[in-house]
Design a protein around this nucleic acid. Structure first.
Length: 227
DNA sequence: TGCCAGGCCGGGT
DNA sequence: ACCCGGCATGGC
């Protein structure tokens, strides 16, 4: 338990590392590359990360396409539009009043610290940026890590409900493990590789959509069966 | 038809 | 420090 991973040419040599890599291999074999994030620009990824909180991605697509159609998918536009109008545009994503406020809070941070320019963020160190994102009301750990990984291309592992269920059902963590513990496990025992983390999380979500990381029932054909 | 979806916050113990 | 209700639409 107190063993630390040993990095050998970027590949940790440790039972937990092998287990996590084994899961990755099985998922990749079963599903293939997922080509995430489904979004055109870093800014769109950030917006999508907020909109998809506890929400089906299909609904988020409608909301984003709405924003695009009305020319609202930019920091300036979202800064200008009144809260109520924004809420109406993102209605299909659910929790639209809540999320309109969260988008506004994110945009406010963008203007306060980066003059509204997303490009300015690329200079900021990852841990500083993560703390900054988490300080925005409405951005929690998963949303922050999604932005870090998929918009800003930092090796920050994203943990979600599917990840928890998958690990619990296969007895890799105990029920009371929290977000940061699980994130730390992946990041301590896997190489800090953006492409790996990108694909890994996307594959877990795919697993959840298709099969046995759903709440119920457990799928007998799970590619992770018999780990 | 009811359950679920790529969370997070705030108030009450 | 936990626990829990609220937030809301659309798909299967």
């Amino acid at each position: 338990m107190n063993l630390r991973p040993v990095n050998r040419e970027g590949i940790p040599d440790h039972p937990v590392s092998r287990q996590l890599l084994d899961i990755y291999e099985r998922l990749f074999s079963a599903f293939g590359p997922q080509h995430w994030w489904p979004g055109d620009t870093p800014f769109e990824v950030c917006v999508g990360a907020i909109l998809t909180q506890n929400t089906n991605w299909k609904n988020v697509e409608k909301a984003i396409s709405n924003l695009k159609k009305h020319g609202l998918l930019s920091p300036v536009a979202l800064n200008e539009i009144p809260l109520e109008n924004l809420a109406a545009r993102i209605r299909p994503a659910g929790y639209y009043n809540l999320k309109a406020g969260r988008l506004k809070a994110f945009i406010s941070m963008l203007f306060e610290h980066f003059d509204g320019k997303l490009e300015s963020i690329f200079d900021v160190k990852t841990d500083v940026l993560r703390t900054l994102l988490l300080s925005v009301k409405g951005i929690g750990p998963e949303t922050a890590d999604s932005m870090l990984l998929y918009a800003f291309e930092r090796p920050s592992f994203v943990v979600d409900a599917y990840t928890m269920r998958m690990l619990i059902r296969h007895d890799l963590i105990d029920e009371e493990a929290d977000y940061d513990q699980v994130r730390d496990m992946f990041m301590d025992y896997l190489p800090r590789d953006v492409r790996l983390y990108n694909e890994y999380h996307a594959l877990i979500v795919r697993l959840g959509k298709e099969l046995c990381a759903r709440r119920s029932p457990r799928c007998p054909a799970c590619p992770l069966e018999g780990l």
